[in-house]
Amino acid sequence: MLSAANLAISRGGVPVLSGLSFTLARGEALILRGPNGIGKTTLLRTLAGLQPPLAGQVAAGEDAVAYAGHADGVKPTLSVAENLAFWARVFGQDDIAPALAAFDLAGLESRAAQNLSAGQKRRLGLARMMVTGRPVWMFDEPTVSLDSASVALFAAAVRAHLAAGGAAVMATHIDLGLSEARVLELAPFRAGATAVPGGTDDRAYDGQGAGAARRGAFDGDDDAGAFL
């Protein structure tokens, strides 16, 4: 469903992760772990196609990925139902009832989102994924401001999605109780300061070593941004 091959990514022009490869099959979930700043969000955004990788490839099906970032994407002046129905229509779906039920939002349909609690708002933000109809869900810290009951709701929704042949990638520190989920520790893939061509590699230019980067710089179309 989703695979990455020898992926290298950068944040703000600085390489953060490199050499990352994995495949995600139907019914699988992948949990990204790593200390703050290692590049979890950047990796998710790269996988979602929002930013290009520095090197390597991401292979995802056409229109396969739905990405929920840190923010909920909830409009405060619209009601719960309006918020969800909007995303459903944008993604060509029309039924929002299952999403409302799965995240225990039934009964709140007509309430304006600005009057929701932080946890309810978060659940609404997560419920967006259910109305996209996309097979691969991506979450960035989905459980922030959720209580344990809501975390269980979320885990159940993800599990149901996996059972229906979907897949999920999420960056989270909390144990969701998803036994079927694989954990990917990102720390070993931390990019070295000069490891990635296109980053800040100076060995490409000092005339020794790093032959690949050197070729990339002199023969290819791209000067690869090496300024050292």
Binding site: L50, D63, A71, D72, G73, W87, T132
Partner: peptide
């Protein structure tokens, strides 16, 4: 839409 993350989801939408 940028601040609340809607734009991310819109950018991956079929539109």
């Amino acid at each position: 839409d940028y601040e609340d993350g809607s734009l991310d989801l819109l950018a991956t939408a079929p539109i």
